[in-house]
Design a binder for these strands. Sequence first.
DNA 1: AATAAGAATAGTAATCATTACTGTTCTTAT
DNA 2: ATAAGAACAGTAATGATTACTATTCTTATT
Lengths: 132, 132
Amino acid sequence: MALRIYSRQREQVLETVKSMDVHPSADDIYHRVRRRLPQISLGTVYRNLNQLVDTGELSCVQDGKTVRYDWETGQHQHFRCEACGALQNVEVSNKEIMNLLSKESGMIINQIDLEIKGICGKHSEKELKERA
Amino acid sequence: MALRIYSRQREQVLETVKSMDVHPSADDIYHRVRRRLPQISLGTVYRNLNQLVDTGELSCVQDGKTVRYDWETGQHQHFRCEACGALQNVEVSNKEIMNLLSKESGMIINQIDLEIKGICGKHSEKELKERA
DNA sequence: AATAAGAATAGTAATCATTACTGTTCTTAT
DNA sequence: ATAAGAACAGTAATGATTACTATTCTTATT
């Protein structure tokens, strides 16, 4: 709403997310930023994260009841490994997904959120043996 | 874990969800069940919902920070209308979605959660005019 | 450089969905 | 009829997030 002005806190929040590849939660980011700005408050982290998502500088994913953040803002979807818990990005074309939908007439699609759950390559060997 | 025994509360929770087509939240279900069992507690509703999902008698979807329940347990995905807020089921074949993925070797896919956001047919006329 | 409007902050309290706990009541196999 | 323990009601606790408030920063203007 109001015109945005500079703040060291927002800069650090953004830089921190950009330096992490693990889809950090607000709390993860808070603890990381505190190394540089020990007096920052959790509310400030949340306010800035929300703002950065609103302006498209960051993206986010719902993960259970917590939200995780991602510097990758292009079209992508997520894979969650149920063995190691990691959330990783996967590329899937939204157009191709749209083609699979039997759309009602007039339906407008704005966003596609896909989460695939399974076991990633690194952790699947045991699983595969058990199933064999 | 423990062997499950009958309870009127669980029966009503299940019946209530089966009678609703709106993907109710635990709280929605609680208020509805209270008409029949005025003394039921919210904790009981949650405990039974979790149990019914575990045994596959119900399914559930994360909707923002709340969980919504669904008597439809077969393979389906969700469409959320951003105009009316309704969450509706859509059929998409998991196999076809899997085919779109560029899988790493050894990756095992157990579950596919797809949420499409947009405007449903009933509410899209205004939108379409605005875009024209 | 001084200043003033209001954006952003730190710190704390409040909210919301959900789970945990506890003493009591039901269910069911014997 | 009874006893083991599953389920319950009611309440307290938790975790993620937002709201509130008095203070500090940023920035455009003098």
